[in-house]
Amino acid sequence: MIELKNIYKYVTVGGNKTFLLKDLNLTFNEGEFVSIMGPSGSGKSTLLNVIGMLDGFDEGEYFFLHESVHKMKEKQRSQLYKQYIGFVFQAYHLIDELTVYENIETPLLYQDYSAGERKAMVSDMLDRFNIVGKKDLFPEQLSGGQQQLVGIARALIAKPKLLLADEPTGNLNSKQGQEIMELFKKLNQEDGVTIIQVTHSEKNAEYGSRIINLLDGRIDK
């Protein structure tokens, strides 16, 4: 599904190149649940952003569903990721001024769905996550776990093939974290969603079928 070949990303500070990602070669297959681990600053989030096409890279090749992302224009990339990729963030990043319902609906606004379709899809999602009763609440009225649930619902609303999660449980207590991880596992096994997550916790990493360890922008073998 995803193939990264010799990916480099660096910043130049005072004439010296500091590598954020250095010569990464990775393949992710459809249906995988992969955990990326590593200490702070090892490039986990950068890698995730590169995969999610939110961030660029300086050298190398990136194939997504056999299409060469590195040759695409921004518009094409945006077309690609809004169709296939969902994001989940550590800090949830819900829009404070929108209700639960509207937050979940947001991604659909940027794709061609009619108002009726949007309504059906959001209701479906609310049902599935058991949060119908909270649909008119604002993020600040929810607990952290509930907010992350909404964040995941939002990530899944457009039926992505790939879910990218950047420390999804980092701001949650262990019980809430566990629930989220169970949900991920279920999504992966029952719905066949490919998941790549960044995490600090060994325990959470175990939920994945494969663990990649990063150190200073490289794969730590």
């Binding site: 939110l54 990721y81 994001f87 990043h93 404070d96 991604p107 940027y110």
Partner: peptide, 16 residues
């Protein structure tokens, strides 16, 4: 900023 970021992540174009 957060709202703008989220919209961009979810595929909003600059034009939108």
């Amino acid at each position: 900023y957060k709202e703008i970021g989220m919209r961009l992540v979810h595929g909003a174009t600059k034009k939108q």
